[in-house]
Design a protein around this nucleic acid. Structure first.
Lengths: 340, 340
DNA sequence: ATTGGCACTTCGAAGGGTCGAGTGCCAGTG
DNA sequence: CACTGGCACTCGACCCTTCGAAGTGCCAAT
């Protein structure tokens, strides 16, 4: 075993011990707890080298070492092996998610499950509309000049919007419009809907065109605006348990977790399922999450991901365990979504 | 002015100063900051009496006094006058809520607004279904043996559920069923729906009865299950700012705020609009919120409340200001809901 | 290259002294 | 009889010092 290999072993050991104990780890403790086959003095030399390279740091002169963000990065990229979930955990995922009744329920159960499994905060993005297709458009007259537009997607999602009409309409017109719209857009990708309905008003008599235009405009607005996605969060209380570790700065962290925009950036582009993105500490700056690490993955039926889910925790999280949990949940949710 | 009146004045002054400074208040400070017209020594006597009666307490022998839960209770019930909102605040409420596009949006804006106005955590219950009436029921075939049931209420809320049919159905049957169901239940109160649809399967041919029964059962399940209401929360980060005041016990508090059940109990029975419920400290036990106070009120169009909204903060909150803010927001949301 | 030994640094806990805020009580006063 | 000024007392906050434990870096030895 070459010297460099042993230095990596030392780094791995430091990360594992520090994650477990949350205390700076010294050379003696390392020699005792791990079979490195060398004396504390040798380990000290390696530690000094690791510190020169920026992988570890000491809080103060006579303390043990703590991994830096760079050290965690190396650990995650090269030193960790994914920890398989225990059978009880697998069972828990199944029984918990199988009870879901609709898409909202799937998401809300997923986010709570993730938070519970990882004992950290979980974030789940609702399946993206932009890659969905239209299953059905329903128009409901609420009043002579007010119509409710309901959009149903193939992922089982339902969006709604009220339209105020410029003039009163009747059931006949609305029925006709409903039929025509559905004929045009059912089965279509969201991206195609716009081009397909633009000419629709012209197919109606002059007196109805404004009404039809109002409805189609709202339909398009629903498609686009909801592209600004929704996100579910759970388990923020778990972060409070780590409390002190965030420099007593829990508040900006909680604020960040309440902001859609920040969360969406956090989840970022959905990676394909079965691959992960791990952002560590300062890699998250300047989002108010620079003291945390984020593990995300994409999910969705089939190969390409509809959306992302992930977990937010202290940089000293159990990366292998967290990655395993996120992966297992994402796989199971993807399976459920395919079934629908 | 009788002695008892002055003691109440002293209590009021203690509450106000303590809320403002977050530090135990002593007799000298009281005499300086308020025009009580008596010397510190006299105030001390009154304070001793107030302490005997359990309205205030000292953290330790040589510290100033702090209001007890009982003291806050008396303050809220008898000593405080509602503080009107500033014009900018009123304007903020209007501009912020007027932009809402649908019911979900109204609720989410409301909860964020409340959190921001009071700088505490806000909780808003979705308008209750049990007092709603049915506007429309839509059935959409997703697959030969799978139908999406969409329920639209007069409050603009949309509920959805997928039904697996025992046998394949066709468009004709579904269309027929849609028409019959709507004929029976549109305009009906939720409570009446069950009796109106029970006999529906018998009106169909024997081969279709199981299918019809499956759909009506799901419809009823949607009505009932969603009676288990949804709740929106925002502003938990604000509680972190008060951090230390909760005995460093932020975690159970955040946990409680993530649990639907706890929140629903918290909001309790919707009081009629324009009346408030204030629960102080230990009055919330044993819900994990015994270190907090909760101000709630009902809201909804017309006289009777559809649901509740409220604010959760430290017992040392600014009660008059909080009550005013909750009231103003509830009134404005009620107005918006009436308009729809 | 590795190791045992050793001097050195630093933190944190423990102990002790001082200070100030605030109290309770009491005797005195209009 | 209610109020007031005075006074002794208590207790936490703060500061300082001391001391031990933990852990390091370096060096000479193998």
């Amino acid at each position: 075993m070459s010297v460099d290999d042993r230095k990596l072993d030392v780094l791995r050991a430091i990360v594992e011990d520090y994650v477990a104990t949350q205390e700076p780890v010294g050379s003696k403790a390392l020699a005792d707890r791990h079979q490195l086959g060398v004396s504390p003095a040798t380990i000290r030399n390696d530690m000094a080298a690791l510190e020169d390279d920026g992988y570890i740091a000491q809080p103060h002169t006579s303390a043990g070492r703590v991994p830096t963000d760079k050290g965690y990065r190396l650990f995650v990229d090269r030193l960790s092996t994914v920890k398989p979930l225990s059978p009880p955990e697998r069972r828990a995922i199944q029984t918990f998610l199988d009870g879901a009744v609709d898409l909202d329920d799937v998401v809300s159960r997923t986010v709570r499950l993730l938070a519970q499994l990882t004992r950290q905060a979980a974030v789940v993005q609702y399946p993206s509309l932009s890659r969905s297709t239209v299953r059905h458009v329903e128009l409901v007259m609420l009043a002579p000049a007010r119509v409710l537009v309901v959009l149903i997607t193939d992922t089982g999602r339902v969006e709604q919007r009220v339209v105020e009409l410029p003039t009163d309409a009747d059931d006949v017109l609305v029925g006709e419009l409903r039929a025509r719209i559905n004929a045009l857009v059912v089965g279509q990708d969201f991206a195609n809907v716009e081009s397909r309905v633009t000419e629709l008003p012209d197919r109606f008599g002059p007196e109805d065109r404004a009404t039809v235009a109002a409805v189609t405009a709202t339909l398009l607005a629903t498609l686009i605006e909801r592209h600004e996605e929704r996100v579910a969060v759970a388990g923020t209380a778990n972060l409070a348990r780590y409390g002190q570790e965030f420099d007593h700065e829990l508040e900006p962290l909680l604020s960040a977790l309440e902001e859609q925009v920040v969360l969406l950036r956090l989840l970022g582009e959905a990676t394909s399922p079965a691959t992960f993105r791990v952002r560590i500490g300062s890699e998250n700056a300047p989002s108010g999450l620079s003291a945390t690490s984020v593990v995300t993955t994409g999910y969705g039926p089939g190969e390409l991901a509809l959306a992302s889910m992930g977990v937010v925790g202290p940089t000293r999280m159990d990366y292998p365990g967290t990655i395993a949990a996120v992966g297992a949940v994402a796989r199971y949710v993807s399976k459920i979504l395919s079934a629908h």
